[in-house]
Structures are given as structure tokens and as C-alpha cells.
Design a protein around this nucleic acid. Structure first.
Lengths: 232, 232
DNA sequence: AAAGAACCAATCATCCTACCTTTAAAATGA
DNA sequence: TCATTTTAAAGGTAGGATGATTGGTTCTTT
């Protein structure tokens, strides 16, 4: 019947404003934000109020303060910050299993909902993967293209929650998975054409199978459950 | 080589201490925490420091302050708080698809890693489901038992990350999924024996299929993508 | 006695001033 | 040129004062 007219606290509104600047990309990751005095003036609030808002953003993981230096942006969304905290306390195997779960569902849904644009984009990234591994073996480029391909598939699932979780969970992880072992990219690249073909033909069964194969390659070296790492 | 000797900020340490009380269960959900003045004394810090810590916990979603009344515990972990925030902005269909993904993986892993204890517990909850729906149709009891069964399967996957995500995501959601439609429990209950049998026989294929069937029942009424709800 | 109004105490919200600690960078000197 | 010292800037902590909101109590009116 009635809308819940919310009477938010002032520091809460400041928090929201700053958060919007970060999630909106106006304050880029790694950049230094204005000093307290300036923000106080620009926002028209007292130092305490501002600091409470900042402290909230620090605890959530969007900001990091360095006494004597300044305050810096460290992440672009609450979700990604918190999940990053959590996943850094997990084993690589655990993370891979979760990724597997989401990849499978995304692939299946993408079969139903993909557009032709999705498809061409996937093919572009797959080509980039191939090119990165042919000859010079540019692992960095392969990693980027591979990650983009995954993201495209997930985006094609048309499930924002799934996509947000996926990106937040594995964004920073992708580095350590691919970087920490000298992969011979050709092996992993094999899965791409199969997956894309399955999605093109809207064949969910086949798409899932190809994801299974793909993940199995990564999982193999991690079959011990106590394979923790501290900082991705 | 060296541990990163952390020189944490005072308000950060206060935050950690209070968070530990909450996640450790000493301060239960819904309870009122001591007033600022008392906490100041007990912790030996100033108002500002304490308030910054509290504000952090509020923004993360572990606490809620009500001016003129007090401060209350609203969640038991950062993850669950943030994910609850996020999922409340999703459609039921999106949530179900993610649940599907995690359920499948959990079922498959449970086939590998389940113990006999896991199995007996699953059977106990399945029995509770049957009993709840026989005769009097106690939907509340069915919902609890069903949820416990799911949690047991997920726990049997021996993947803490997966389990944390699962519980944090769907803990509060389970209510609205099951409550909002007058389910004839017998239909959904069918899946339980099949799933448990598959896990007993360590037959991942069959376990996954039975999860598919199970979720399909719930999904059916939600095939429209704009089925948003605001507050679970 | 019941209903409403006025009051009051408890609690969080905001602002203020003052001073401390840490850091990066500039100034200094060998 | 290099190492040391100094300094200015930034965030960290403290404590006081006042405002705003809420829930409960008390008082009035009918």
C-alpha cells in the first residue's frame, strides 16, 4: 500500500553517494580520492559524518586508507569486495568447483537465450585466444581473451545475478589460475570451438559437456583439498 | 618470508572484535547490543572510534541502528548480509537458476565425498518432509525439513565456499519460494528419494538429473524474467 | 476505566575543536 | 650523488556539546 519512505542517516547518504561514484566508475580503481577536508566541503558535512561513511566503505572493501598518504579506491562493487575477501580464504579447488557450477548453468542458459551478437563476440574472443597461443605464446593476451570469452557466455545467460557473482568471484582469481602454471594454451583452447558450436546450435547437453572438459583440465593439478592460497 | 605484520587501525580492530562476537554467535541475531557509552568503556576507545567501527558493521549489514532505540544485530556474516542485499534486487527466476547451478554441483560432489553419516541425515530430513506433508500438510515443517535436506547435500560436497555461498544466498529466500505458492508438497517430495538414492550409489549423473527435475518444478511458475520482488 | 495528550528518559546522530601518528616529499649536508 | 633530516600533508583518536528520534510513563479528559 505505502512505500517505505526511508529516512536514511546522513552518513548513510554520504556512503551511498561515494559508493555511486565508485561503482559508476567515476573514481577508478587505484586512484586517490580527495582528502577529507575537500570532501567535507563538497558534501557539506562534518568530519565525523564523512569519516563514518568512509570507514563503512573501507570495511566493505571499496576503499583503503593509508595514514599520512591518502585514501584509495580498491574495488568497484560491494559484492566483488566481499567475495574477494571470502574467496581468498578458500582453496583453488573449491573456487574451481564453484566456477564449474556457474559455468555449466551459464552455458546451458546461453543456449536458450543467446543472440547472434553474443555469438559473434564469442567467436572473436576465441580467435584472440588462438592467435595469442600461436607462435609467440603470449600468455597474458590468452588469459584476457579467455576471460572475456567466459564473461560473454555468462552474459549471454541473461541472468544478472549469475553474471555479477561470476565476475565478482573470479575476476581476480583468473590471474592465479592461469598464471601460476605454465599452461600450454593449445590444450585449453580446444574446448572453445566445441562450446561455441554447442551454443550456436542451442545444444545445452553438448555445451555442458564441453564445459566439463574445460574445467577438468584446470582441476587436475588441484585434487588435494588443502591447497590454500592467501593472496590472489 | 615475512608475515605482513599488520598495523591495523584502532577502529578496525574494534570492528574485528565486534564482528567476531556476531559471527561467533555470542550476539544473536535480533538482539540489542550494549549502548555506545558502555561499549566505549568496555573497549576503552573514544566515541568516534567506536562509532566508526559500528558504522562499518552497519554498512556491511551486520548491524542496524535505530536512533532513540538502540543498535541491533541483523545478520551473522558479511557474506550473507551482502548477498542478501544483492539478491533482494534480483528476480526469483534468476535466484532459482543460480540455486540450480549450485545444487547440481553440490549433488555431483556429494556423490564423491559423502559419508554414511551424511546419508543417514539426508534420510532423516527426507522422512521429515514426508511426514510434514502426510495428512495435516504442515507447510512450515516441510519447508524447514526440505531446507535442511538441501543444506546437508551441500555440506556433503565438502566445499566450504560452495556451502557458504549457498546458505548465504538462499537462507532467507527459501521462505518466499516455498511460502508464496501453495505447494502440494507431494510433488516436490518425489525428488528426494531419487536424489538420495543416487548419492548413496555415488551416481553423479542420476543425482544431477534428479536435481534438474526438482528445480524444474519451482521454475515453472517463474518463466517471466521481470518477476522482481523487493523484500524477502 | 479508556483514550488521548503531554512529558521524559534513553539512545543514536551530528558537529566541533584539539592533538597525535604516519607518510611522502622536500630540504639539507657530507 | 647519496644519505640524513626536516617539514607539510594526510589520516587517526579523543572528548565535549547539542540535536533528533523513539519508547515508555504519566497526566488529563471524557
Amino acid at each position: 500500500m505505502f512505500e517505505k519512505l526511508e529516512k536514511q542517516t546522513l552518513s548513510g547518504r554520504v556512503y551511498a553517494q561515494i559508493e555511486a561514484l565508485i561503482t559508476g566508475g567515476e573514481w577508478e580503481i587505484g586512484s586517490r580520492i580527495p582528502r577529507e577536508a575537500d570532501l567535507m566541503e563538497q558534501l557539506g558535512v562534518s568530519r565525523n559524518t564523512l569519516r563514518e561513511a568512509i570507514r563503512g566503505l573501507v570495511q566493505v572493501g571499496l576503499l583503503e586508507t593509508r595514514q599520512g598518504d591518502g585514501t584509495f579506491v580498491t574495488a568497484s562493487s560491494e559484492l566483488s569486495a566481499i567475495l574477494h575477501k571470502r574467496i581468498s580464504r578458500s582453496s583453488i579447488l573449491e573456487a574451481l568447483e564453484v566456477q564449474h557450477a556457474l559455468d555449466r548453468e551459464a552455458a546451458a542458459l546461453a543456449c536458450e537465450r543467446r543472440t547472434d551478437d553474443d555469438l559473434t563476440q564469442m567467436e572473436r574472443y576465441a580467435a584472440a585466444c588462438r592467435q595469442a597461443m600461436s607462435g609467440s605464446e603470449d600468455h597474458e593476451a590468452f588469459k584476457d581473451a579467455d576471460w572475456n570469452l567466459h564473461r560473454t557466455v555468462v552474459a549471454a545467460s541473461r541472468n544478472r545475478l549469475l553474471a555479477d557473482l561470476y565476475e565478482s568471484l573470479f575476476e581476480k582469481l583468473q590471474v592465479s589460475i592461469l598464471a601460476n602454471r605454465s599452461i600450454s594454451g593449445t590444450r585449453y583452447e580446444i574446448g572453445h570451438p566445441t562450446l561455441i558450436a554447442a551454443i550456436r546450435d542451442r545444444d545445452a547437453e553438448r555445451a555442458i559437456r564441453s564445459v566439463d572438459d574445460y574445467i577438468a583440465h584446470f582441476k587436475a593439478p588441484h585434487e588435494r583439498p588443502d591447497d590454500n592460497w592467501t593472496d590472489v
